[in-house]
Amino acid sequence: MQVYNFYLFSRHGTCLYYREWQRTRPGSDTQQEQQNLIGLLFAVKQLCRSLAPANDDSLPIDTATRYMPRGPSNFCSYSTEKYQLHCFESSTGLRFVLTTSPTASDLTRILQRVYREAYVECAIRNPLYTLGTSIVSESFRKRLDSVIRTLAVESTVFRPASEKALRGNGSPATKS
């Protein structure tokens, strides 16, 4: 499995951090790409919610009767022939996005680790960091890299065989 790039979006949709590893085709306009991506994620979230059944038992009674449930969406990934995009949204609205080759399994756990071990440790706990600004910390990059490196090791060991059945065919397929 190859890991292409990583984005971290704030709750207001600005890109706080961007890093690429094995990106073979560089984007022409990074800013535009980030804007398009966050637009896509917002749209997918809205769509997933509006398609969800209203009487969802997993929701508390008072919100279940409402049209849109609150909180982060459980949308976790879509895949195409060429790549797979993984997303984890925290309750505070941060979005951790990772793109990989389409042979990856569920990476929510890895993105939660990025949240816990990189973002909380190096941004939230850094008194010099102002919330909502882009992250320039070198230690953030190191921690992010070390989490992604464990992924490279794990993925060869723990890849479920049934994952192949869920592939989309060219067009984005959502599993939410």
Binding site: L59, P60, D62, T63, P69, R70, G71, P72, S90, S91, T92, Q112, Y115, R116, Y119, V120
Partner: peptide, 12 residues
């Protein structure tokens, strides 16, 4: 808190 506690999300 959210990252370390593993508490269920607040839906209401």
């Amino acid at each position: 808190f959210l990252a370390r506690s593993a508490a269920p999300p607040c839906r209401s």
